[in-house]
């Protein structure tokens, strides 16, 4: 890999971004012109560094490149500090904002729903972050909530969209606590409610919890794995907000894309310093 800090012409440069999330690790390779060259998503598991390495190798393979071709790799996500080959880190708040800003102009509110947390990030008209909110210390409103509900419905999270699409009756579930919602769901099953209706109710719970986190006015963009793989969430947000979320390409990998953009900026603009911890911690 080229040494970080070497200045090259924009068209000939290559960058990587890794998003080490709680459930999945995502890697993206881009060119100096921000063109998407390859990506990969792998399960994070308990070996953060191993998952990051695997995702990175798969993304490089998809791009037809070797590690040595890249000018810089930056990391984001909860495991960002566990990736020794990354040249710098930024938070996922920053990277999702970068990713959205690349695709969407003007003041925007971003909803990012990941496996472990949900975030609402507000950007001003110039695309600068002005505030963020994160979920409470509770899985309600996150991908983990959907995992738990799928388990109770004796299905997998992957099949939850298909199940929910068959709904015929509106059923409500709480959005305060995952454990309580699970108990409530079991009660509803005993009461004769259909699994398809309860799957939809789980999605409604996630959407309601996220909508409680902030005021949504103006354009709203969606990112993260839940947005990428659960289309009913998008329909429900549209019902509440009166307009569909803007979903940039590759919403699940958008944080990794943002990290690659940060890597690019660090080299091409020479203006972005690595987060202090990555540079300074022993």
């Amino acid at each position: 890999m080229s040494a970080a800090g070497s200045a090259k012409g924009g068209a000939n440069t290559l960058f990587g971004g890794i998003d080490s999330g709680s459930w999945n690790t995502k890697a993206v390779i881009i060119g100096g012109d921000c063109r998407w060259l390859g990506s990969a998503v792998v399960r994070t598991g308990a070996d953060l560094e191993g998952a990051a390495g695997a995702a990175f190798e798969l993304a490089l393979r998809a791009a037809g490149l070797g590690r040595e071709a890249l000018d810089a790799v930056w990391a984001t996500g909860f495991g960002r500090r566990s990736i020794p080959f990354a040249h710098g880190t930024r938070t996922e708040l920053d990277c999702h904002a970068r990713g959205v800003r690349h695709h969407v102009q003007g003041a925007t509110t971003i909803i990012d729903i990941g496996g472990q947390d949900a975030k609402v990030i507000r950007l001003d008209a110039e695309g600068r972050r002005i505030s963020h909110r994160m979920n409470r210390k509770c899985a309600a409103g996150t991908g983990s909530f959907l995992d738990e509900m799928a388990l109770r419905l004796d299905t997998s999270t992957d099949r939850l969209p298909e199940l929910a699409a068959k709904f015929s009756e509106e059923v409500e579930l709480g959005s305060f606590c995952t454990v309580f919602s699970g108990t409530e769901l079991l009660g509803a099953i005993r009461g004769g409610k259909r699994p398809a209706d309860l799957a939809r109710a789980a999605y409604k719970s996630v959407v309601r919890r996220v909508l409680e986190m902030d005021v949504f006015d103006g354009q709203v963009a969606g990112t993260g794995g839940v947005v990428a793989h659960h289309p009913m969430v998008l329909d429900l947000f549209a019902q509440h907000l009166g307009a569909r979320l803007i979903v940039p390409p590759h919403p699940q990998e958008l944080g990794a894309f943002g990290a690659a953009l940060a890597a690019r900026e660090s080299i091409l603009n020479q203006g972005l310093e690595p987060a202090p911890e990555a540079a300074d911690l022993p």
């Binding site: 909860f78 938070t91 987060a275």
Partner: peptide
Amino acid sequence: RTSIEGFVEQ
């Protein structure tokens, strides 16, 4: 930590 670090980045 993510929230605070993100705020400092902001």
